[in-house]
Design a binder for these strands. Structure first.
Ligand SMILES: [Mn+2]
Ligand SMILES: [Mn+2]
Ligand SMILES: [Mn+2]
Ligand SMILES: [Mn+2]
Lengths: 220, 220
DNA sequence: CGATTGACTTTGACTACTCAAAATAGTAAT
DNA sequence: ATTACTATTTTGAGTAGTCAAAGTCAATCG
């Protein structure tokens, strides 16, 4: 059985790998993501390599093996199903479920997970729009296009919000830019470093480029 | 924050204390209950004593302090609410929820616990008939009288089953002796070391004294 | 080329938890 | 009052995970 520490490392490596595919995840990045000092990450990754869960190149970085990826996806599946469950069944706010799921993802058995999946009617995305990995196999690739990449006049649908911090999620909520919503891009001025967007039926909002980059979209 | 290990020790001490009130819990008993060797329990209990959660008398045993008891009750509340939740909301069998709750009891936040409590409509007993400790204060004292203590002809109600092992619970289920059921005692022969009992609307069943002692009752 | 810099690795130490096995202290029996 | 038995405690060692700080590597820059 993988400890919850190991599960968190694998999940983190997976997510970092998604952000820049075909590259090794450097130890500094991983340490930052997991919340430890770099030396700790090095030590841990060497142990993971010994268990065959990652491959490790000294001074290069780490990459998940097939086995490590499967485990990471299983953790991610638990995390995201739990998040959706907390929102849909227990009525928590989408801004607070990430922290809850961070613990619960390690305590849910396969049996309970299956019940949750059934109760939610086999959902495919979590409250933040992130794809829920299937019980086996890889998840559908998620949108990589953000509001910051949109042209003026485009009509798009909000797909995911890639920042889990409660404050940002609450802000997005107030703007009405939650996943699923259709919106039109009123302006995108690189010089002004900002994007103006109008969610259907709501008022126009202006986001700085950094914020806009955290809101992923798909064609409406 | 108390680790899950600490939480389990405290819970175990509490439960052993319930079984024989006004006595210290000896280290052998505690070690057995927690699933470690006696030396480990001694070490741990000394650490708990240093944190003020238990009082410890060498070669006597341990007892919870007020603080330790509160923590133990909080863990027990989570454990039992989770059990009921798993049965009522996710449809698991009462014979399997104990093992699940053993993990989940350490991962549930106060907020989630409150939602579960509300969703279940502030229940007072878990699927095995054990009282759910209130958010603050002590739980109602549970019945201590067992089927083995009943007289022939008595009409009683099954209150709790004090053995959480799946096999025993499934057996009890088949007999129809689940908590809440009313039954009449057909015979209780100390010589035969067995009790015959007839659950309302079901067939008479015969239990050995040891099994009967694990089925707690109250006046019907 | 050599020096500087910044990321990475190594080392040593610490906390939390555990077991095996030896030492000890009561208790019970001779 | 010894002796024997049993529960408990102590000791020594090991695993998992972590940090601080010192050491190393390699890329970059003068
Ligand atoms: Mn986690
Ligand atoms: Mn999410
Ligand atoms: Mn537990
Ligand atoms: Mn129970």
């Amino acid at each position: 059985m993988a400890s919850s520490t190991v599960e968190d490392y694998l999940k983190r490596i997976y997510l970092e790998q998604q952000r820049s595919p075909d590259t090794l995840v450097p130890m500094g990045r991983l340490a930052e993501a997991v919340g430890v000092v770099p030396g700790t990450a090095t030590t841990m990754v060497k142990a993971l390599a010994d268990s065959g869960l990652v491959s490790y190149e000294p001074r290069g970085g780490a990459r998940l093996t097939r086995g490590g990826e499967q485990l990471a996806l299983h953790v991610l599946r638990r995390h995201r199903l739990v998040e959706l469950f907390l929102v849909k069944v227990l009525g928590l706010d989408w801004s607070e479920v990430h922290a809850e799921a961070e613990e619960l993802e390690h305590a849910i058995s396969d049996k309970v997970l299956e019940r949750i999946d059934a109760l939610l009617d086999r959902p495919s995305v979590d409250p933040h729009g992130d794809p829920i990995p299937p019980a086996k196999g890889r998840p559908a690739p998620a949108s990589r296009r953000s509001l910051a990449d949109c042209e003026r006049g485009e009509s798009i649908r909000i797909a995911r919000v890639s920042d889990q911090s409660p404050g940002f999620l609450q802000f997005i909520d107030r703007c009405g830019l939650t996943p699923g919503i259709v919106a039109t891009v009123d302006a995108n001025d690189p010089q002004a470093d900002s994007v103006r967007v109008r969610p259907r039926g709501k008022e126009t909002v202006t986001l700085g480029a950094a914020a806009a980059a955290k809101v992923l979209v798909e064609v409406a």
